Simulated assay, not measured.
Amino acid sequence: MRIAIMGAGAVGSYYGGLLARAGHAVTLIGRAPHVAAVLRDGLRLQTLAFDESVPMHASVDPAAVAGADWVLCCVKSGDTEAAAAALRPHLAPGVLLLSLQNGMDNADRLQALLPQQRVRPVLVYAAVELAGPGHLRHHGRGELVLGAGPDSAATASLFAAAGVPVQVLPDLRAAQWSKLVVNCAYNALSAISRLPYGRMIRGPGIEATMREAVAECLAVASAEGVTLPADLWQQVRALADAMPTQQSSTAQDLARGRRSEIDQLNGWLVRRGEALGVPTPVNRTLHGLVKLLEDPPGEPPLA
């Protein structure tokens, strides 16, 4: 298979690296330092199971997607429209485009802008980071979740052959909501505190704040007509014990001086709450604090 990764950050590099290691012709499209390192030395995949360099093609030019059978879109949610515009001139009709992105509506946004392609949402559960140009570090998990459909069996089979666990669900919507709830509970607090989950959750009042954020998410989901697992809070809480050294993607973005996806996480939840008449004060506060860290207001002019 010819596979292009649009947005070769941590997630894109991890799955692109595993697919290339399994023998597929993978092209990473990403930032210049990462691309240069991959072209020179291959991608170092430092996982819990192995540590090796995987040779593959890489480019800074979106035109490198030309000829791909599959495209994995792994850009930040705020870059979805720009990515679609960059891809559009180079894709043949009918290419399978998998959205491995945080947030609730990226696949819909891609499909609206790329009507000739087959766009499918994919949920990602992987603790990964770019430790440096050309160096991917895997901290845990790595499974993907797909919705049932005409492409799901072939998609799951190809990923599974590359060592990626895949689950196919009849209805992906509840799973998307469940992941959003986890992100709303952890991402902002990890970014604000600059702490890994295990230390963060031990802070005074933090577990109670997380529980309140989750309760707001459940209220908005209920108003949306989505039924979520009764033990979802327990699942959320267990993540800190399962991945105590992990920091959120939002924390990693802020540490690198980049904009995060907080508008598509707590911010999205706040907007849906407003539309449905459900108050979300905790999520609003978390969203606002991260936005302040992303783009602090300038000093007022001197009188």
Rank of each mutant, 00 (worst) to 15 (best):
L239V: 15
W70C: 00
A20R: 07
L189K: 01
A238I: 06
H138Y: 11
L19I: 09
W177Q: 10
F50E: 14
T209D: 02
P170R: 01
L292V: 14
T209R: 15
E143L: 06
A22I: 05
E216N: 08
D295V: 01
A86P: 03
S248K: 04
V71G: 10
S249K: 11
Q101H: 09
L228Q: 10
A242R: 14
A156N: 10
E212D: 14
S260F: 10
D263N: 12
L19G: 11
A240T: 08
V214P: 07
R31H: 12
D51P: 10
V182A: 13
A223W: 01
P170Q: 02
G132H: 08
I206L: 14
E212Q: 15
A223N: 03
S13V: 07
L232R: 09
R141E: 14
A66P: 08
L158Y: 01
A37R: 06
A86K: 02
N183F: 08
V182I: 12
Q234A: 15
A303K: 04
R258V: 00
R173M: 11
S77A: 15
R194N: 13
A32N: 05
A126F: 02
Q235Y: 02
S13K: 04
H138M: 11
E299L: 13
P170C: 01
P300Y: 07
T245D: 15
A161K: 13
E212G: 10
W268T: 05
L72H: 05
L19C: 10
H90S: 10
L43P: 10
A10S: 14
S190N: 09
E216K: 05
D171A: 13
V35D: 04
R202L: 12
A83E: 07
A58D: 04
I192V: 15
R44M: 12
Q167L: 03
W177M: 09
H135V: 15
A63C: 05
A242P: 05
G147Q: 03
A154W: 08
V164A: 06
E224C: 13
M1N: 02
S260H: 10
Q116K: 04
L19E: 06
A84D: 01
M243R: 00
A68H: 08
K179V: 09
R194S: 13
V95H: 04
S13N: 05
D295C: 13
E52N: 01
L87M: 15
V122R: 07
G23H: 04
E274Q: 14
H57Q: 13
P93C: 04
L286T: 12
Q117M: 12
A82M: 07
C184V: 10
K76G: 07
C74Q: 00
E129R: 14
P297K: 09
H90E: 06
T245V: 07
A66H: 10
D51E: 13
Y14L: 15
N183K: 06
Y197I: 00
Q246D: 01
P204N: 05
S99V: 00
A148H: 12
